[in-house]
């Protein structure tokens, strides 16, 4: 595609022959009969755009390569080494084989699964209920604004505020739980039975609004005519909800679930501040354990092996998520 002949011969070039193709030009033209192809300015289909777009992309790709690709290679190399504060030495697969005998590593996965499941179940049910209640309410705008306030708070700060509220001598929530008879004595954070619940509650407090916001956006797109038609046929509001509203919400809720699931892997700020994995490792979900191994004991090699397992799981989850994202626009909400 170099000379001026290109003007007319565009249609004969099958897509994919050139590495780059300007969007909205050749593919549209191909659909039309050749006779309808009008001569275009040469510049549009010359080789220039390809290079031009590459130049525009280059800085971002270069930065990303340095802070994402290069570290990833490093991570693999490190996982095969015994790296501490100084330079590493090769140890082969020892870091990995040790993981299978590491109780806290395996336990960390179990706790992470429990933690995520509890957070999700609570957030999803409360968030959905809230969205249904708030949707179309008189003060909707105000209510939603009030609800999303916790999301703006730094998770570490949220953790500290809740540490204050949970405190066994002067915490208001401690007082509340005791007054309601839910807690005997001792702080909610100091018992192995309740510590996990405590950090789940903080996550629920901070991120339920996100589910509500997502569900609310979905609710606005539920076809009203279907609801009305169903009502005319005598369906109860409850039946309407399960027959029409919920199926329509399904795609957005799926996105919400995936996002929250991955964020539970991503963020440990609040949990780190609140319990740091204790008491007696009862809240040591895998990312916290990894944090400890890598940045408290500075066993970076072992940390790298753990990080790699965590990354693999996240990438699989991400692949699933992207598949949902990339559905055709018409199916998407």
């Amino acid at each position: 595609m170099t000379s001026g002949v290109t003007n007319v011969s565009v249609a004969q070039v099958p897509p994919g022959t050139s590495l780059f193709r300007a969007r909205g030009t050749s593919s549209d033209i191909e659909a039309r009969p050749i006779t309808a192809v009008l001569p275009l300015p040469v510049r549009l289909n010359s080789a220039a755009p390809r290079r031009y777009y590459l130049y525009l992309m280059a800085p971002a790709i270069a930065v990303l390569a340095f802070i994402s690709l290069y570290p990833f290679v490093w991570l693999i190399v490190m996982s095969l080494q015994d790296v501490g504060v100084g330079a590493g030495e090769w140890v082969g697969l020892k870091n990995y084989t040790r993981l299978f005998n590491d109780v806290r590593f395996l336990e960390g996965w179990v706790l992470l699964a429990q933690y995520s499941a509890m957070c999700l179940a609570l957030q999803l049910s409360i968030g959905l209920l809230l969205a249904v209640i708030v949707n179309g309410a008189r003060w909707e705008k105000f209510l939603v604004t009030a609800l999303l306030m916790p999301m703006m708070m730094a998770p570490a700060v949220a953790g500290l505020v809740w540490l204050f509220l949970y405190n066994g001598t002067f915490g208001w929530y401690h007082w509340l739980f005791q007054s309601l008879g839910w807690l005997d004595s001792g702080s909610i954070l100091s018992s192995t039975d309740t510590a996990m619940l405590a950090i789940v509650l903080v996550d629920v407090w901070q991120w339920t609004p996100l589910i509500t916001l997502i569900a609310l956006a979905g609710l606005k797109r539920v076809p009203q005519d279907q609801l009305e038609a169903n009502m005319v046929d005598g369906a109860s509001p409850l039946r309407n909800f399960f027959a029409i509203t919920l199926p329509n919400l399904y795609p957005v809720l799926l996105i919400a679930i995936m996002l929250r699931f991955m964020d539970n892997f991503r963020f440990i700020d609040a949990a780190l501040v609140l319990t740091g994995g204790g008491p007696a490792d009862s809240t040591k979900i895998l990312p916290i354990y990894l944090f400890e191994v890598a940045f408290k004991f500075f066993k970076l090699g072992r940390g790298a092996a753990i990080a790699l397992t965590l990354l693999v799981v996240t990438i699989i989850l991400g692949k699933l998520l992207v598949r949902i994202f990339e559905k055709p626009k018409s199916e998407r909400v």
Binding site: W74, M262, R266, I268, L290, A294, L300, G303, A307, L310
Partner: peptide, 13 residues
């Protein structure tokens, strides 16, 4: 989407 702690291990090195 990668977990922050996991990214940080090689980034720190």
């Amino acid at each position: 989407m990668a977990p922050v702690v996991a990214v940080m291990v090689p980034l720190y090195a």
